[in-house]
Design a protein around this nucleic acid. Structure first.
Lengths: 352, 352
DNA sequence: ATTTAAAATGAACACGTTTTCATTATTCGT
DNA sequence: ACGAATAATGAAAACGTGTTCATTTTAAAT
């Protein structure tokens, strides 16, 4: 009966290995490996026995050992400047859920606050043999990434068809891309603001090095021109509440007659709204109309009830995961591009 | 000169290995390994040469190979029900920063929304050979964790000295613990509410299975009793804005005369405030006083300007990392306990 | 019943590192 | 200048797995 030693008896229960299971099941170690790979050919009853004993022993294939030979770490790196930022935390959340479902785990890395990509961080990341990399800090140079990383497949998110980035003729690297068409949503926003009588527009930017901000600003200005509106005022920002608040205060200190503010992200819009309402004594939307970008969860909260341009997070994450899995299955596949739409969510910060 | 083949020439630049570097530097692979371990004994000039060539080649020690022999993955698992929750995202952010500084990476795992700990998730995690695990989903049974995980060292966060959890006499497992003394902060909160004339208190709970909530409710009730106040009304909650909003609406629908609400977390408090102000036409703090718990970034935003009990995040993360590193250095060290204090941050939702 | 194809199996090797261990080169004290 | 202590060095083994390959077993086809 008890031909094998009681596992619990050992003071430090040594991690069960494939050999342990094999010996107990009376099969070779290879069989154990096969039992955990659904596509391997193995007699059904033998697989069942192995799996049963494995569960009994609490055995799980060691990822490190597996990664060494398969050259797949099942690790996806996510680089963020700030996890707390609601949009990013929501995306990380969705991404983690989706990846976990596919058998991948999310590895988190933080850039410095100035978003300057640290050489040390990159070589550090390289050591983990990431299967793929998603960089939210979009100012990371694609060449830097490619050069500094191993087998990982970076995916680039750009914000316009003629995006200023990757796949340059000179570069041999090929990037899968996710293009977000922001113009449609922003146009709807401007149209609405215009319909409610906005005359004097301002654009509150995000971090200036961020690609999302650059392209958002470009789209906004282009729309203004198309609609025959004057060049908008541009406020300095960095996606944070505090800076947005301060910038708004500065703006109205010099007595500008701005009556419509478009913020590069929702959190910034919150700062704008709070500055207007609580420090400048102005009403939103009666005196000044405000529109944000992202549609994070907080935008639906009644205190802000923000009208904002939405990127569908579900769609976005689905597309990202699709790109990752495809690239993983065939590393030589040609570069692929997914496109995402944006649309305006109308709430209470523009009209009644 | 060019005795070695040009790396760039290869179509798929094979990942440089320790052997590659060794051959180029004219040393043994062992020397390369030693060059990357500061404590190993190696002639300075030789180490410099190796490091130079390594950088040139973009070589980084492979973590998988290293983990296999050192039995240290340099991976710390973080289990969360919801990354978007501000408090948790802030903690993840701080944790990632701190761990990254110590050479560890953060691996993210999500529990199901009902927080029921999935057996499959655990065995899945086990495969990664985590060095340590921090479980935010506090309802995970400690025995389950210990049994299902490998060398990882879980850390438990409890919320009272006589905490109802780990280190039971029967269990052989030893847990390092972080105790958060919430009573001090909550007492200050109640004192302030009382000073501003609160008579009729209510407690808005978090997820009922959460240890933080259980202990928070216990502390609140105990304080009420100590101060000779009547047993408070308890509102059902789950830490979300939406539920808090709905619960508050329900509360005042039956015409209760509650004039002081303490929420188990800040996000819940936001829901309470918005329900009062925008749906019930009541003023905060004039008609009803509200206090939250956590002191997340949003609590300082002017629209809410929430008075709340603060757990110092920096302290908390520092303590966690300290526990992890100590346990990693000496797996046999006796269980250790760190304690954290809480204190009230006074803003505008109680008095003027 | 016999041939043919397919499925199942295990031995040996490979993945990239760190860690003994025994050996050689260096420094130190007098 | 000499023995003793110390630092530096590389060969071989180990970590836990997946994959080839040649062999054996089973099933299918005539």
């Amino acid at each position: 009966m008890s031909e094998h030693p009681n596992i619990q008896e050992a003071k430090r229960p040594e991690r069960a290995t494939a050999d342990t299971v094999a010996k107990l099941a009376g099969v070779s170690r290879v069989a154990v490996s096969r039992a955990f790979n659904p596509h391997a050919s193995l007699k059904k009853e033998k697989r069942d026995l192995i799996l049963k004993i494995a569960k009994e022993l609490g055995y799980t294939p060691d990822m490190a050992g597996r990664a060494l030979v398969t050259r797949r770490s099942h690790l996806v790196g996510v680089i963020v400047p700030d996890v707390c930022s609601p949009w990013e935390s929501q995306e990380i959340d969705a991404l983690t859920t989706a990846l976990q479902g596919e058998g991948f785990a999310t590895l988190l890395f933080k850039t410095r606050t100035d978003q300057s990509m640290d050489e040390r961080l990159l070589t550090y990341m390289k050591g983990f043999n990431l299967d793929s990399i998603i960089a939210f800090a979009e100012n990371v140079s694609p060449d830097t990434l490619t050069h500094s990383l191993g087998r990982a497949v970076p995916i680039y998110v750009s914000y316009s068809e003629d995006g200023s980035l990757p796949n340059q003729p000179g570069s041999t690297s090929v990037f899968d891309r996710l293009i977000v068409d922001q113009k449609t949503g922003i146009d709807q926003a401007v149209a609405l603001m215009q319909a409610y009588g906005c005359k004097d527009f301002a654009y509150l930017g995000g971090t200036t090095t961020s690609l999302a901000n650059t392209e958002r600003e470009r789209a906004f200005k282009s729309i203004m021109k198309e609609r025959g509106l004057p060049e908008p005022l541009v406020l300095q920002g960095d996606y944070t509440y505090e800076t947005a608040l301060a910038s708004t205060l500065d703006l109205f200190k010099v007595g500008e007659g701005v009556d419509g503010i478009f913020s590069a992200n929702d959190v910034g819009a919150f700062g704008v709204i709070d500055a207007l309402r609580f420090q400048l004594g102005l009403r939103v939307p009666e005196d000044v109309k405000v529109v944000g970008f992202d549609d994070i969860a907080q935008s639906g909260w009644l205190s802000y009830n923000l009208t904002t341009v939405k990127i569908d997070l579900e769609d976005r994450v689905r597309a990202l995961v699709r790109l990752i899995l495809r690239r993983l299955k065939d590393p030589n596949a040609p570069a692929m591009t997914e496109t995402l739409q944006t649309r305006l969510i109308v709430r209470g910060t523009v009209g009644s």
